[in-house]
Amino acid sequence: MSVQVKGTKLFLVMAAVLFFISPLFLSRYAIYVLNLFAIYALVAIGLNLVMGYTGLISAGHAGFLAIGAYSTAILTSVAGWLSPLIILHVAGLLTGLIGFGLGIPILRLKGIYIVMVTLAFGVVITEIILQWSSLTHGDDGFRVPRAVLGGFVFDSDKKLFFLIQPITIVMTLIARNIVQTRVGRAFRAIEQSEIASETMGIDLAKYKTKAFGLSAFYTGIAGGLFAYAMTYISPDSFNMGVSIDFIAMIVIGGMGSILGSIIGAVILTGIQHALSELPKVQTLIFGIALIVFMIFMPKGISGLIMDWKQGGPNRKQSQ
């Protein structure tokens, strides 16, 4: 047992070391894709907090990604001397605040109405970005200045790797802790029985808005990193289809699972880049996968892994 634990730890340390030296021997493109994996993993974790854990729906998360991306881009262009860590925090908090605000009308709604409101939110955000061209350059898109941290310029995918990956890892661990402690348990409780939750003392309004705010914070940070990674953003990067892709990520990866969020983000982003020449085929694959998973594997890939672990060769009574 303890040998096994030691083995696992050693494996994890080695994997981490290997991961962080990988930019030395990976191609520029591969590093760029790894960065996108991380960014979308953050989005998927954020969306999962609201959908998988709390049982609400958001069909407008691209809107949050856009707010994070544009606020990071604008802030970096007017105050480039600020540390990107501060800029990302501001972008994340701003997005979180807006998410919190969107959570309020959601409180009175159920099911399909939540879908409609969040969908509309996503559309409104891209429309605002288009119209507010004095700030956002509208249709022309926004050229994002490089992030600078104490004289160090993040001007390549390789350098950005060391900004994006650590942030993603830390935020993933934080999310894991949140879902395993009081707040996360309240989220999950709400998803499973609102009536039992409130009679156990959980303030539904408070926790639903918190879930939206937290989810938007994660997605806002991801948006900021997205802006740095892409170096150019336009309203089209955040259309409705993008929001649907995010839902596909967590459905395929696994609702209510941090690991599932990462798996879903990696698989979908991977397919997107493998089939970048064939956008139509891509959409088709995502659509079919979404349906197949919802019907046959509602717990997603992480659910399959969990089932396999429990029923696999070294089956043991959970302690």
Binding site: R182, V183, R185, A186, A189, S197, M200, K210
Partner: peptide
């Protein structure tokens, strides 16, 4: 979850 009101950790 039953102990929710007696615990205090936040996000």
């Amino acid at each position: 979850v039953g102990q929710h009101i007696h615990l205090c950790s936040g996000i």
